[in-house]
C-alpha cells in the first residue's frame, strides 16, 4: 500500500512537471510570436535603402534591407571658419549632423559658386547669380545627390584627399562609389549623418 502511494505521488509529480514545462513552452512560443510581430511593426518604420555617413572617420555606408552593401571613404566638412573681409559675413564649413533625405538626383551637375567660394580665393564676387564665371561644370563630378540647404553628395577632382575633413560641408566620393550611390538610392531615401 505504501509503495502504491509512493508511485501515485511520483506520477503526480511527473505530471505536474510536464504541465509546468508545457506552460513554459507555450509562454516561450507566445514571446517569440510577440517579438516577430514587434519586429514587423518596427520594420514598417525602417527604410529599405539608406545611407549612413560617419563624419568622425569619413566613412560612407549604403545599407539595404539591414545589410551593409557598400562602404566607401568620403571627405566631409573641415569645420573651418571663413570671414568676409570688410563685411559681416561669416561661414563655418561643417557637415550637418542628423537625419536628411535625398531631395534631388542630378547628372552632370553644374556648381553655381556661392559668395564664399570667391571670398576664399580672394576673387571679386559676381553681382548676378547667373554670371558665367560663377558656373563650374567640373568640380562636382558626374553626379550629385542634393540633401537640402546647399549640402550635396558629389564627386571630387582630388580623390587623394578623400578620408580627410577638407570640404565646405558637402560629402565627396570617388567616381565609382558616387556612381554606385547614385544608382542605388532614390529621391526620398534617408541619409543619416553622425
Amino acid at each position: 500500500m505504501h509503495s502504491f502511494h509512493t508511485i501515485l505521488l511520483a506520477l503526480y509529480m511527473v505530471f505536474s512537471f510536464c504541465l509546468h514545462l508545457s506552460a513554459r513552452e507555450t509562454e516561450s512560443e507566445q514571446l517569440k510570436t510577440d517579438i516577430a510581430s514587434l519586429r514587423e511593426a518596427l520594420k514598417r518604420h525602417a527604410a529599405e535603402t539608406y545611407i549612413v555617413i560617419d563624419t568622425v572617420h569619413n566613412r560612407l555606408q549604403v545599407w539595404h534591407n539591414n545589410q551593409m552593401i557598400r562602404e566607401a571613404t568620403c571627405a566631409t566638412g573641415s569645420g573651418k571658419v571663413l570671414l568676409h573681409p570688410g563685411a559681416s559675413a561669416r561661414w563655418q564649413f561643417y557637415t550637418p549632423l542628423g537625419t536628411r533625405a535625398i531631395l534631388h538626383k542630378v547628372t552632370d551637375p553644374i556648381w553655381a559658386k556661392p559668395l564664399w567660394a570667391f571670398v576664399e580665393n580672394g576673387e571679386e564676387p559676381t553681382v548676378l547669380p547667373w554670371e558665367f564665371r560663377r558656373l563650374d561644370r567640373t568640380t562636382l563630378g558626374a553626379f550629385a545627390l542634393k540633401l537640402g540647404d546647399g549640402y550635396e553628395i558629389h564627386g571630387t577632382l582630388y580623390p587623394t584627399l578623400l578620408g580627410r575633413h577638407i570640404t565646405h560641408g558637402c560629402i565627396r566620393l570617388n567616381d565609382e562609389d558616387l556612381a554606385f550611390v547614385y544608382r542605388s538610392l532614390q529621391v526620398g531615401d534617408r541619409v543619416y549623418i553622425y
Binding site: 520594420k43 525602417a46 527604410a47 549612413v52 534617408r190 543619416y192
Partner: peptide
Amino acid sequence: HLKSQGNMLR
C-alpha cells in the same frame, strides 16, 4: 547598436 527610425547605423 546605434540606430535611428529602426535602421541600424553602427
